[in-house]
Simulated scan of single mutants.
Amino acid sequence: MLARARMYAVLAFLLSGGVGIISSTQTWITANRADAAEPLLVSGADAMPLLAPLSLAVLALGAALSIAGVVLRYAFAVLGLGGAVVLLTGTLPIVLDPPLEAVAPALTKATGLSGDKTLQAMVSGLHSGGWAIAALCAWALLAAACAFVLATAHRWKAGSRRYEQISDGHHAEAGPLDAVDSWDELSHGTDPTGPSR
């Protein structure tokens, strides 16, 4: 498993961020209105304003994690864990019992009215949707991925040979060459098919 640890961690970051971005445009809360027949559908971005920016940050961390050295792996994991905590604490109340504050901006935009008492009288029920639950699962996956990175990052394989420093004119032996490595060897004046290989 450690041989592919970086790949698993990066995929978990990208999946979590992707779910967050997609869910930000989808319905998180359905607000039944006492003053209208049609319910108000509140998107993830309206219910939690930090959703889209933090999801983009998670995507960026995942992309950077794919090429990061040991120290940056830990830094990215800590940042990701902080983001996961913020997103979890923002999403969990919406999933369990959507608060009025999560739909207040959308209600005000739809009706032109504001004030907690006015909006409370206008809403007959709030219900969370499947996208909020999907996002909550994504944040749990992100937190687990961050913990995984913190526990295993020091044992991940180093980057590709072609990015390592050449000390004696030859690449360090690390297994069979691929097509790009063969071209790199030729560029350095070494025959990759020679007897030394």
Rank of each mutant, 00 (worst) to 15 (best):
L100G: 10
H154K: 11
T89C: 04
L50H: 07
G112Q: 05
E164S: 10
S167G: 06
E101A: 12
R161L: 08
A37N: 14
V70W: 12
A37K: 13
D97L: 05
L177M: 15
Y74A: 14
A106E: 06
R155T: 15
T91E: 01
A52Q: 12
G80K: 10
A68W: 03
H127Q: 14
Y163C: 07
L51A: 10
L142E: 05
V85Q: 04
A110M: 03
A57C: 10
L126N: 03
A138E: 09
I133S: 10
G44N: 13
R161P: 14
L119T: 04
A153D: 09
A68Q: 02
A75N: 00
L141K: 01
L136D: 01
M48N: 07
A68P: 05
H154R: 14
A34P: 03
A140C: 11
A45E: 15
A60L: 12
G44P: 11
V42M: 07
A68G: 05
I133V: 15
A104R: 10
L51T: 09
G82D: 04
A63T: 09
T111A: 10
A144W: 14
R162K: 08
V78L: 15
E101C: 00
W156F: 15
L141G: 08
K109M: 03
G125L: 04
L126W: 03
L88W: 06
Y163G: 13
A132D: 01
P39M: 08
A138F: 09
H171A: 11
A174M: 04
I133Y: 08
G125V: 02
A104F: 09
L79Y: 06
E38M: 11
D35R: 12
A145I: 11
Q120V: 11
F148L: 14
M122A: 02
P176Y: 10
L126Y: 01
S124K: 06
T91I: 02
E101L: 06
G69H: 10
G125K: 13
T108Y: 04
Y74Q: 09
L141F: 07
A57W: 09
A147H: 01
V78A: 15
G129K: 10
E164A: 12
I133C: 02
E164Q: 14
E164C: 02
V58C: 08
C137F: 14
T89P: 00
G90W: 00
S160R: 13
G44E: 11
A158Y: 12
L126R: 02
E38P: 00
A104T: 08
R33C: 03
A64F: 07
H170C: 00
A153W: 05
L177W: 14
A145R: 05
G44W: 14
S66M: 12
P98L: 01
L56Q: 13
A68T: 03
D35G: 05
G159R: 05
N32A: 15
L41C: 00
M122D: 02
A110P: 00
V78W: 12
Y163H: 14
G83Y: 10
S114C: 02
V71E: 05
L141M: 12
G69S: 06
C146K: 04
P39H: 07
A172L: 14
P99R: 08
Q165C: 06
L51V: 05
Y163R: 12
D35I: 06
Y163I: 13
W131S: 04
A121V: 00
A151V: 11
